[in-house]
Design a protein around this nucleic acid. Structure first.
Lengths: 116, 116
DNA sequence: ATGCAATGTCGTATATTTGCGACATACTTC
DNA sequence: GAAGTATGTCGCAAATATACGACATTGCAT
Protein backbone atom coordinates (compact mmCIF):
# COMPACT_ATOMS: atom_id res chain seq x y z
CA UNK A 1 0.00 0.00 0.00
CA UNK A 2 1.90 2.95 -1.26
CA UNK A 3 -1.10 5.13 -0.75
CA UNK A 4 -3.09 6.71 2.00
CA UNK A 5 -0.86 6.61 5.01
CA UNK A 6 -3.75 8.15 6.85
CA UNK A 7 -3.31 5.88 9.85
CA UNK A 8 -0.31 7.91 10.89
CA UNK A 9 -2.30 11.06 11.44
CA UNK A 10 -4.56 12.35 14.18
CA UNK A 11 -8.12 11.13 14.28
CA UNK A 12 -9.14 14.77 14.07
CA UNK A 13 -7.03 15.32 10.98
CA UNK A 14 -8.38 12.20 9.36
CA UNK A 15 -11.96 13.15 10.03
CA UNK A 16 -11.54 16.68 8.77
CA UNK A 17 -9.88 15.48 5.59
CA UNK A 18 -12.56 12.85 5.05
CA UNK A 19 -15.29 15.45 5.17
CA UNK A 20 -13.24 17.81 3.05
CA UNK A 21 -12.85 15.07 0.47
CA UNK A 22 -16.61 14.72 0.36
CA UNK A 23 -16.81 18.41 -0.58
CA UNK A 24 -13.87 18.18 -2.95
CA UNK A 25 -16.04 17.80 -6.01
CA UNK A 26 -18.32 20.52 -7.37
CA UNK A 27 -21.04 17.99 -8.04
CA UNK A 28 -21.26 17.06 -4.40
CA UNK A 29 -21.27 20.70 -3.36
CA UNK A 30 -24.04 21.28 -5.86
CA UNK A 31 -26.02 18.33 -4.53
CA UNK A 32 -25.92 19.68 -1.00
CA UNK A 33 -26.93 23.13 -2.18
CA UNK A 34 -29.76 21.62 -4.17
CA UNK A 35 -31.03 19.68 -1.19
CA UNK A 36 -30.81 22.83 0.88
CA UNK A 37 -32.74 24.94 -1.57
CA UNK A 38 -35.56 22.58 -2.39
CA UNK A 39 -37.88 21.95 0.50
CA UNK A 40 -38.88 18.60 -0.86
CA UNK A 41 -36.03 16.16 -0.71
CA UNK A 42 -35.77 15.36 -4.36
CA UNK A 43 -34.77 12.03 -5.71
CA UNK A 44 -33.65 11.44 -9.26
CA UNK A 45 -34.47 15.03 -10.06
CA UNK A 46 -31.02 15.73 -8.72
CA UNK A 47 -29.55 13.91 -11.67
CA UNK A 48 -31.65 15.99 -14.03
CA UNK A 49 -30.32 19.21 -12.54
CA UNK A 50 -26.68 18.26 -12.82
CA UNK A 51 -24.61 18.08 -15.99
CA UNK A 52 -23.68 14.49 -15.29
CA UNK A 53 -25.14 11.13 -16.10
CA UNK A 54 -27.60 9.58 -13.72
CA UNK A 55 -25.11 6.86 -12.87
CA UNK A 56 -22.43 9.32 -11.89
CA UNK A 57 -24.79 11.38 -9.78
CA UNK A 58 -25.90 8.23 -8.01
CA UNK A 59 -22.30 7.51 -7.12
CA UNK A 60 -21.80 10.99 -5.70
CA UNK A 61 -24.97 10.51 -3.67
CA UNK A 62 -23.63 7.25 -2.28
CA UNK A 63 -20.41 8.96 -1.28
CA UNK A 64 -22.27 11.61 0.63
CA UNK A 65 -24.51 9.00 2.16
CA UNK A 66 -21.52 6.92 3.23
CA UNK A 67 -20.46 9.82 5.43
CA UNK A 68 -24.05 10.24 6.61
CA UNK A 69 -24.09 13.81 5.36
CA UNK A 70 -27.27 13.00 3.50
CA UNK A 71 -29.87 10.34 3.99
CA UNK A 72 -32.05 8.51 1.53
CA UNK A 73 -35.50 7.25 2.22
CA UNK A 74 -37.26 4.95 -0.18
CA UNK A 75 -40.71 6.19 -1.02
CA UNK A 76 -42.19 3.58 -3.26
CA UNK A 77 -40.50 3.89 -6.58
CA UNK A 78 -38.53 7.02 -5.89
CA UNK A 79 -35.88 7.75 -3.32
CA UNK A 80 -36.00 10.83 -1.18
CA UNK A 81 -32.70 12.39 -0.18
CA UNK A 82 -32.36 14.93 2.56
CA UNK A 83 -29.59 16.68 4.43
CA UNK A 84 -28.46 15.47 7.81
CA UNK A 85 -28.50 18.96 9.25
CA UNK A 86 -27.47 17.76 12.66
CA UNK A 87 -24.25 16.27 11.36
CA UNK A 88 -23.68 19.21 9.06
CA UNK A 89 -23.82 21.53 12.04
CA UNK A 90 -21.24 19.45 13.87
CA UNK A 91 -19.04 19.44 10.79
CA UNK A 92 -19.43 23.18 10.52
CA UNK A 93 -18.21 23.55 14.09
CA UNK A 94 -15.18 21.42 13.37
CA UNK A 95 -14.31 23.44 10.31
CA UNK A 96 -14.79 26.65 12.25
CA UNK A 97 -12.49 25.42 15.00
CA UNK A 98 -9.91 24.50 12.40
CA UNK A 99 -10.07 27.84 10.63
CA UNK A 100 -10.02 29.80 13.88
CA UNK A 101 -6.93 27.89 14.91
CA UNK A 102 -5.39 28.60 11.54
CA UNK A 103 -6.20 32.30 11.44
CA UNK A 104 -5.53 33.24 15.03
CA UNK A 105 -1.85 32.50 15.30
CA UNK A 106 0.87 34.89 14.32
CA UNK A 107 1.51 34.33 10.69
CA UNK A 108 2.91 36.40 7.87
CA UNK A 109 3.93 39.94 8.47
CA UNK A 110 2.00 43.00 7.29
CA UNK A 111 3.05 42.63 3.69
CA UNK A 112 2.79 38.86 3.81
CA UNK A 113 6.43 38.46 4.60
CA UNK A 114 7.35 35.70 6.97
CA UNK A 115 8.37 36.93 10.39
CA UNK A 116 11.13 34.42 10.92
CA UNK B 1 -11.45 14.49 -20.92
CA UNK B 2 -13.53 12.02 -19.07
CA UNK B 3 -12.70 13.68 -15.84
CA UNK B 4 -13.43 16.85 -13.99
CA UNK B 5 -16.38 18.27 -15.78
CA UNK B 6 -15.95 21.15 -13.44
CA UNK B 7 -16.59 23.72 -16.10
CA UNK B 8 -20.28 22.92 -15.95
CA UNK B 9 -20.61 24.05 -12.36
CA UNK B 10 -20.90 27.38 -10.65
CA UNK B 11 -17.76 29.35 -10.01
CA UNK B 12 -18.70 29.28 -6.34
CA UNK B 13 -19.04 25.50 -6.35
CA UNK B 14 -15.76 25.11 -8.17
CA UNK B 15 -13.91 27.33 -5.75
CA UNK B 16 -15.36 25.66 -2.68
CA UNK B 17 -14.48 22.22 -3.98
CA UNK B 18 -10.98 23.36 -4.90
CA UNK B 19 -10.30 24.51 -1.38
CA UNK B 20 -11.96 21.42 0.05
CA UNK B 21 -9.68 19.30 -2.08
CA UNK B 22 -6.70 21.07 -0.59
CA UNK B 23 -7.92 19.97 2.84
CA UNK B 24 -8.83 16.50 1.63
CA UNK B 25 -5.60 14.96 2.85
CA UNK B 26 -4.63 14.63 6.51
CA UNK B 27 -1.07 15.64 5.72
CA UNK B 28 -2.19 19.01 4.42
CA UNK B 29 -4.47 19.53 7.39
CA UNK B 30 -1.54 18.67 9.62
CA UNK B 31 0.70 21.12 7.79
CA UNK B 32 -1.71 23.97 8.34
CA UNK B 33 -2.11 23.09 11.99
CA UNK B 34 1.65 22.92 12.35
CA UNK B 35 2.12 26.33 10.78
CA UNK B 36 -0.59 27.66 13.05
CA UNK B 37 0.96 26.28 16.20
CA UNK B 38 4.58 27.23 15.63
CA UNK B 39 5.21 30.90 15.69
CA UNK B 40 8.24 30.56 13.51
CA UNK B 41 7.30 29.56 10.01
CA UNK B 42 9.22 26.34 9.81
CA UNK B 43 10.78 25.05 6.66
CA UNK B 44 11.95 21.49 6.23
CA UNK B 45 11.15 20.85 9.87
CA UNK B 46 7.65 20.23 8.61
CA UNK B 47 8.85 17.14 6.84
CA UNK B 48 10.51 15.93 10.01
CA UNK B 49 7.24 16.22 11.92
CA UNK B 50 5.18 14.28 9.44
CA UNK B 51 5.27 10.55 8.81
CA UNK B 52 6.01 11.07 5.15
CA UNK B 53 9.11 11.44 3.08
CA UNK B 54 10.52 14.88 2.49
CA UNK B 55 9.64 14.66 -1.17
CA UNK B 56 6.00 13.93 -0.48
CA UNK B 57 5.73 16.71 2.06
CA UNK B 58 7.25 19.11 -0.43
CA UNK B 59 4.54 18.18 -2.90
CA UNK B 60 1.81 18.80 -0.36
CA UNK B 61 3.38 22.17 0.40
CA UNK B 62 3.34 23.04 -3.28
CA UNK B 63 -0.32 22.16 -3.51
CA UNK B 64 -1.18 24.43 -0.64
CA UNK B 65 1.02 27.14 -2.10
CA UNK B 66 -0.66 26.81 -5.49
CA UNK B 67 -3.93 27.87 -3.84
CA UNK B 68 -2.06 30.62 -1.98
CA UNK B 69 -3.20 29.18 1.35
CA UNK B 70 0.42 29.22 2.45
CA UNK B 71 3.40 31.21 1.30
CA UNK B 72 7.03 30.37 1.15
CA UNK B 73 9.88 32.76 1.57
CA UNK B 74 13.43 31.80 0.81
CA UNK B 75 15.75 32.64 3.66
CA UNK B 76 19.17 31.70 2.50
CA UNK B 77 19.37 27.97 2.53
CA UNK B 78 16.06 27.28 4.18
CA UNK B 79 12.54 28.12 3.12
CA UNK B 80 10.08 29.70 5.48
CA UNK B 81 6.44 28.80 5.10
CA UNK B 82 3.62 30.70 6.69
CA UNK B 83 -0.13 30.78 6.58
CA UNK B 84 -1.97 33.29 4.45
CA UNK B 85 -4.34 34.17 7.25
CA UNK B 86 -6.11 36.75 5.16
CA UNK B 87 -7.12 34.21 2.55
CA UNK B 88 -7.90 31.61 5.20
CA UNK B 89 -10.35 34.01 6.78
CA UNK B 90 -12.07 34.55 3.47
CA UNK B 91 -12.22 30.80 2.91
CA UNK B 92 -13.64 30.37 6.38
CA UNK B 93 -16.40 32.81 5.53
CA UNK B 94 -17.22 30.93 2.37
CA UNK B 95 -17.41 27.64 4.21
CA UNK B 96 -19.56 29.20 6.88
CA UNK B 97 -21.94 30.59 4.28
CA UNK B 98 -22.13 27.18 2.69
CA UNK B 99 -22.81 25.37 5.94
CA UNK B 100 -25.37 27.94 7.07
CA UNK B 101 -27.16 27.53 3.78
CA UNK B 102 -27.05 23.77 4.22
CA UNK B 103 -28.23 23.70 7.81
CA UNK B 104 -30.89 26.38 7.73
CA UNK B 105 -33.33 24.90 5.27
CA UNK B 106 -36.02 22.44 6.19
CA UNK B 107 -34.48 19.04 6.01
CA UNK B 108 -35.16 15.72 7.60
CA UNK B 109 -37.97 15.35 10.05
CA UNK B 110 -37.55 15.01 13.80
CA UNK B 111 -36.38 11.41 13.59
CA UNK B 112 -34.40 12.03 10.46
CA UNK B 113 -37.25 10.98 8.24
CA UNK B 114 -37.70 12.88 5.04
CA UNK B 115 -40.66 15.16 5.05
CA UNK B 116 -41.73 14.54 1.51
C1' DA C 1 36.85 26.56 -5.80
C1' DT C 2 35.20 22.54 -3.12
C1' DG C 3 32.19 20.26 -0.21
C1' DC C 4 27.94 20.02 2.24
C1' DA C 5 23.18 20.90 3.47
C1' DA C 6 18.36 22.26 2.28
C1' DT C 7 14.82 22.37 -1.37
C1' DG C 8 12.41 21.60 -5.28
C1' DT C 9 11.56 18.99 -9.62
C1' DC C 10 11.26 14.78 -12.45
C1' DG C 11 10.18 10.20 -13.37
C1' DT C 12 7.81 6.19 -11.93
C1' DA C 13 4.77 2.85 -9.63
C1' DT C 14 0.61 2.21 -7.38
C1' DA C 15 -3.92 3.52 -5.56
C1' DT C 16 -8.00 6.16 -6.03
C1' DT C 17 -11.34 9.04 -8.28
C1' DT C 18 -14.40 10.10 -12.00
C1' DG C 19 -17.64 9.09 -15.55
C1' DC C 20 -20.67 6.23 -17.94
C1' DG C 21 -22.96 2.25 -20.29
C1' DA C 22 -24.97 -2.21 -19.31
C1' DC C 23 -27.34 -4.79 -16.20
C1' DA C 24 -30.15 -6.21 -12.12
C1' DT C 25 -33.69 -4.93 -8.80
C1' DA C 26 -37.89 -3.12 -6.99
C1' DC C 27 -42.18 -1.09 -7.32
C1' DT C 28 -46.22 0.85 -9.70
C1' DT C 29 -49.76 0.43 -13.04
C1' DC C 30 -52.61 -1.69 -16.15
C1' DG D 1 -48.68 -11.30 -14.75
C1' DA D 2 -46.65 -7.86 -18.21
C1' DA D 3 -44.79 -3.53 -19.14
C1' DG D 4 -42.67 0.51 -17.79
C1' DT D 5 -40.14 3.53 -14.62
C1' DA D 6 -36.83 4.83 -10.99
C1' DT D 7 -32.57 3.36 -8.63
C1' DG D 8 -28.61 1.23 -7.53
C1' DT D 9 -24.60 -1.86 -8.60
C1' DC D 10 -20.93 -3.70 -11.60
C1' DG D 11 -17.31 -3.38 -14.77
C1' DC D 12 -14.40 -0.75 -17.56
C1' DA D 13 -11.50 3.30 -19.32
C1' DA D 14 -9.34 7.43 -18.47
C1' DA D 15 -7.72 11.02 -15.43
C1' DT D 16 -5.73 12.22 -10.78
C1' DA D 17 -3.72 11.69 -6.51
C1' DT D 18 -0.20 9.73 -3.54
C1' DA D 19 4.38 8.36 -2.34
C1' DC D 20 9.15 8.19 -2.93
C1' DG D 21 13.96 7.66 -4.87
C1' DA D 22 17.14 9.96 -7.96
C1' DC D 23 18.67 14.18 -9.65
C1' DA D 24 19.44 19.23 -10.23
C1' DT D 25 19.79 23.69 -7.99
C1' DT D 26 20.99 27.00 -4.66
C1' DG D 27 23.41 28.98 -0.87
C1' DC D 28 26.55 28.46 3.12
C1' DA D 29 31.00 27.26 4.96
C1' DT D 30 35.67 26.04 4.64
Amino acid sequence: MTYAKTAAFTEEQQHLSRVAKALAHPARVAIIQLLASKQTCISGDIAAELPLSRTTVSQHLQELKALDLIRGEIDGLTVCYCLNTELLQRVHQQFTAFFLEATSGAACGPDDACAC
